[in-house]
Design a protein around this nucleic acid. Structure first.
Length: 242
DNA sequence: ATACATGTTGGAGC
DNA sequence: GGCTCCAACATGTA
């Protein structure tokens, strides 16, 4: 569920509740639930992997982390971390990370850094990467301050698409590969979004979880790489190390 | 069925 | 103070 494109899909499912009033909110999150009572949902946004529910005086920020879930007008057996009770509806978030932000905090979320945003800026990403001379390409793609919304699946697929080895140092890439990396971070994210919506995402994976390279048929390497030691699949033959 | 995974935070330890 | 490592969170899937 939780890479950027999935959050955009979540936003879309919540859009019908804009202008609805939260009658009351509860759950086991440590929140000032009363700040949400009788408040109208003004807007639903996403920034990368975060969901932002805007009210007049505050913003609810939800991060679903890896395996958390939500239900609309349904309940799971476990207790929700946050429930928003509307007049005729109920939105439940389970086990996620929830915080209440002040409206001024929204300034920190620059949509030019969000790969799913229509104003996403590859130039801004490339300028930010220039300041990180040693950063590895896998860590670069997962950096939420640069490519907000890119997750581990997108990382793997982007590197395979542009034929760059995951152990490459970003600064050592030829200029065309640097641009391709930035551009594909957004292009693949939009492909991910379309495939996820039509429930064909897995079918479109070329390298992630694969055993054989779809180009050359040689065995795919699997290693745990980068700052977060994340699962990384690559073809040593087709992906060039820079 | 046991282990792992689309992610991040915060605390311990050095 | 700063860095790194790891547990915690909780559940669907293989």
């Amino acid at each position: 569920m939780p890479e950027g494109p999935s959050l955009v899909i979540l936003k879309e499912t919540l859009l019908p509740f804009v202008n609805h009033v939260v009658q009351y909110a509860d759950g086991y999150a440590e929140l000032d639930f009363h700040r949400l009572a009788k408040r109208k949902i003004l807007e639903i946004r996403t920034h990368g992997k975060q969901l932002l529910i805007l009210f007049r005086d505050c913003v609810v920020r939800i991060h679903l982390l890896m395996f958390r879930s939500y239900r609309i007008d349904e309940r799971k057996l476990t207790k929700p971390k946050l429930s928003l009770h509307l007049k005729n509806h109920e939105i439940n978030f389970y086990a996620c990370s929830v915080r209440i932000l002040e409206p001024a905090d929204l300034a920190a979320y620059d949509p030019r850094e969000d790969v799913m945003s229509p104003v996403w800026s590859p130039g801004k990403a490339l300028r930010a990467l220039k300041k990180l001379p040693d950063v590895n390409v896998s860590d670069a793609l997962l950096d939420q301050g640069i490519f907000a919304g890119v997750g581990n699946i997108i990382k793997n697929e982007v590197l395979f698409r542009i034929r760059v080895h995951p152990r490459s140092v970003f600064a050592s890439l030829p200029p065309a590969k640097k641009r391709a990396l930035a551009q594909q971070a957004a292009i693949y994210s939009h492909d991910f979004y379309s495939w996820k919506k039509e429930a064909t995402l897995k079918k479109h994976w070329l390298i992630y979880t694969k055993k054989k390279c779809p180009r050359c048929a040689l065995p795919v390497f699997k290693e745990y790489l980068g700052i977060g030691k994340r699962r990384t699949f690559y073809c040593d033959n087709c992906q060039v190390r820079y």
